[in-house]
Design a protein around this nucleic acid. Structure first.
Length: 271
DNA sequence: CAGCGCCCCTGCCCGC
DNA sequence: TGCGGGCAGGGGCGCT
């Protein structure tokens, strides 16, 4: 999936063509996503104008004339503009046809993605209301993270991937940020020092910003809203590099599982 | 409550 | 070449 940079890339790619356009129709080919799609989705969206778009964590939100549409790309989702009458492929589950004749297509092989309409502000919705701060916001800082971590025995990697602590730090960037900060992924969050948190916050902000700038990381077939791949993969220093030499000290990178997720680290550089 | 597994699902890669 | 097993960018949920 798209991690935060890929979601941001998608948002930037799909927004311009839909702003101030009305939804003419919603074509649903597969209702079974993370949650079954609302049977009345097409009816609820018909004629609604997209007034604004935004991102909260890995959720995309379309502000409509009435209510908001919450979208999530799960592990394998993507959205892109397609030409009208482009034949749908196997996993092209939903199309939105806009008043300017543009067609926005939601594709998601694994179907962990979500499409949820809400009549109130998306931030009040149960899916979004308990989310932690945005990683690139000023309120995500060393004091905040250090304070939240005290007495917590959870592995630091799971801790920073917890959306209640901070949103948008997925497996790839958690691995990268911990490497850059010199912290072992399995270390208890409560035992990570304040200095290490200072480095970690900086690393998270840096790696996410750089990935956004590069248009996200394309591992398999991620494409942004413009259909182009991301170019961050070449920047990855530890993710997917287990068994290879550390790019800093040449020690062999190790692989462990933390919270059922692959965690790669350098036994020399990270403590 | 914190924290850990399980699970949703398809595709792909690897070893036999 | 075929098949089973394991793994994949997420995260809600139920259980201890």
């Amino acid at each position: 999936m798209p991690e935060l940079p890929e979601v941001e890339t998608t948002l930037r790619g799909i927004s311009p063509l839909m702003l101030n356009q009305s939804i003419v129709d919603t074509v649903v080919r597969q209702r079974q996503l993370r949650w079954p799609l609302d049977k009345n989705l097409a009816q609820k969206l018909r004629g609604q104008k997209v007034l604004a778009t935004r991102r909260r964590g890995k959720y995309l939100v379309l502000q409509l004339t009435q209510g908001e549409l919450i979208l999530h790309l799960g592990m394998s989702g993507s959205m892109r503009w397609v030409e009208r009458d482009t034949p749908p492929q196997k996993h092209d589950h939903v199309d939105w046809i806009f008043s300017n004749q543009q067609v926005l297509r939601f594709t998601d092989p694994r179907r962990f993605g979500a499409i949820v309409w809400t009549d109130a502000a998306a931030e009040q919705h149960p899916l979004l209301k308990d989310l932690g701060p945005e990683p690139l916001a000023a309120e995500f800082n060393v004091e905040y993270l250090f304070q939240r971590s005290r007495k917590r025995k959870q592995a630091i990697k799971s801790f920073v991937m917890d959306n209640k602590i901070v949103v948008g730090v997925g497996n790839i960037y958690a691995n990268e940020a911990l490497f850059q900060a010199g912290i072992r992924p399995g270390k208890a969050a409560g035992r990570v020092t304040k200095l290490q948190y200072l480095l970690l916050v900086a690393a998270i902000k840096k790696v996410l910003s750089q990935a956004i700038k590069a248009g996200g990381t394309t591992l398999k077939d991620f494409v942004g809203g413009d259909g182009k791949p991301g170019y961050f993969k070449q920047e990855l220093q530890v993710y997917g590099r287990e068994g290879l030499p550390c790019l800093v000290c040449e020690a062999e990178l190790k692989l462990v599982r933390i919270g059922q997720r692959a965690s790669t680290y350098c036994p020399q550089c990270q403590s």
